[in-house]
């Protein structure tokens, strides 16, 4: 999808959030010279094209006390990694799940997933449950909790 000038104006208007009023799309339209219907139509088109992943309430989990962040890495046999990845990625508290290459002999792990929680013990309990329900007891794994953040640059669209 090629973005036209109006799409770029629309993105610029909504990327920091919709106005919290009764008719937010109408309000955004007034600012950039589009009707309410046109704004809704373009937002749907941007979503259908995959440029907008979702419209929703964007929660800052850190502010709610979700400060325990674990990266769990697994050494899954190659012929099972896609199937295990799909199952882990579908679990509610798993926020990221990727396959990455092994770097032998230093790094044997090929599946990475991220789990957030309020407390470290709770995250560890959740991982124990995952291991049982997904039958991963035989799969070598390692849990890496996050520590200091040295740099974090927020992703903006333009």
């Amino acid at each position: 999808m090629v973005l036209n000038k109006q799409d770029c104006q629309l993105i610029a208007q909504i990327q920091d959030g919709l106005p919290l009023t009764s008719r937010p799309y109408g309000e955004v339209g007034r600012r950039i010279g589009l009707s309410e219907d046109q704004v809704i139509h373009r937002v749907k088109a941007l979503q259908a094209a995959g440029i907008i992943k979702r419209m929703g309430v964007v929660v800052r989990h850190h502010e709610l006390g979700y400060t325990a962040n674990a990266m769990v890495v697994w050494d899954v046999p190659d012929h099972q990694v896609d199937e295990v990845g799909a199952r882990l990625g579908a679990r509610d508290c798993v926020t990221l799940c990727y396959r990455r290459p092994r770097r032998l002999p230093d790094w044997p792990y090929n599946l990475f997933c991220m789990i957030h929680g309020r407390r470290r013990e709770r995250v560890l309990e959740y991982i124990d449950q995952l291991v049982i329900t997904e039958q991963l007891g035989e799969v070598p794994r390692k849990v890496l909790f996050s520590g200091r953040r040295f740099k974090q640059r927020g992703a903006r669209y333009q």
Partner: peptide
Amino acid sequence: SEALILQILQRLQDTGVISRVGPVFKP
């Protein structure tokens, strides 16, 4: 009521619990 929903969202945004009500872009 709509008024209460708007009031809650405004408060959550002001206190930083939510960063916005709006789009999440695909990387």
